[in-house]
Amino acid sequence: MSDKKTNQVGDTGHVWDDNLRELLNEPPRWWMISFYASIAWVLVYFLLYPSIPLIDSHTKGIMGWTAINEYKEDLSKIEQVRAPWENKLKGMSAAAILADSDLTNYTISSAKVLFGDRCAACHGAGGAGNPGFPVLADDDWLFGGSVESIQESITAGRQGMMPGYASQISTTEVDELANFVMALSQGNGDSQPAGKALFDSSGCSGCHGADGAGMHMMGSANLTDGIWRFSSQDQLESVKYTIANGVNTGEDTARNAVMPSFENQLSAGDITKLAVFVHQLGGGQ
């Protein structure tokens, strides 16, 4: 059929390779319809939307559409969804939010991005901690694990201090102290009487308490549990280093442990949300 048909169709007169002719076949109707429909579509599109670039601007289109407006509309839609929750949260204390499970769930979802942006760089995703930076998901808190204390830590920042003892006691005494502290963390401090005596006489108990359990008031670490503020593969060496050089003394050798204040970087509402988030990571009290 098709062979017969081609014989009847005229050609442009362009013949090459002896017998190849350029035929004057009409394009199929459906193709022409689509072709003209596409042209019509372009005209309508050019009329409705920004399309033709000019020297310092472009045609605006009669619909006034812009990408940034579409983005803003979408954003306002999301904000409308969030509005009922956000209005409820306004002025609420962290403790009041925690009392309501739906509000808590919303706050956690909402603060997740904040935590990722502001906190996770040091404290790790999910508050898993990093070498030198405290784990937030456990129940050991230097400055207290109540939601109010956490909120205070985020708002004002925290900076504990421990003097370095290298100049005050001998290396042997540092070793004895470190052995005592290690034993203390495993619950048998009495096995190191020499270190225990030094602990009291050198003034350690002044901050860490007579029992070594630490004080939230000044952020002194609890030495009786298995959680270390400066954890390391070789924990004994790490303890010796801390005792010798101290924390935040201003010396270059001292351990550096500063939580910055977020008061000027985040709104009070965001800080409240973050406090709830951190409290719910697993160790809030």
Partner: peptide, 11 residues
Amino acid sequence: ERQPLFVLQSD
């Protein structure tokens, strides 16, 4: 929970 997988508690 994946991050962290587990947490050591003070007890």
